[in-house]
Amino acid sequence: MYGPVEIRTLFFASYKDLLGTGEIQVDLPAGATVSDLVSALRSRGGAFTVLPTAPVVALNMTYTDPTSLLSDGDEVALIPPVAGG
């Protein structure tokens, strides 16, 4: 069997305020997707349950969709609605 994947997970702005942290490490089984990562986060309980079920996500700094497969060492950022300009 393949080993678990370690994902560096980043939070910004309102998500960071909500969770009280900007970064956590999440271990997932091999074959996990972005959607699995979000489920794993939400299942931590507390403030994590307030995260959207399908937030916008950037995988290694590129916007991606929930079905994207994760690899060991990936950086995933949960992106709240943006307000630049």
Partner: peptide, 19 residues
């Protein structure tokens, strides 16, 4: 405005702050 990962928190004159 559509896709740059930048967020803005406003500081109001009454002291409140909001994303």
């Amino acid at each position: 405005k559509k896709r740059l990962p930048v967020w803005k928190k406003e500081r109001y004159s009454d002291g409140a702050e909001e994303w």
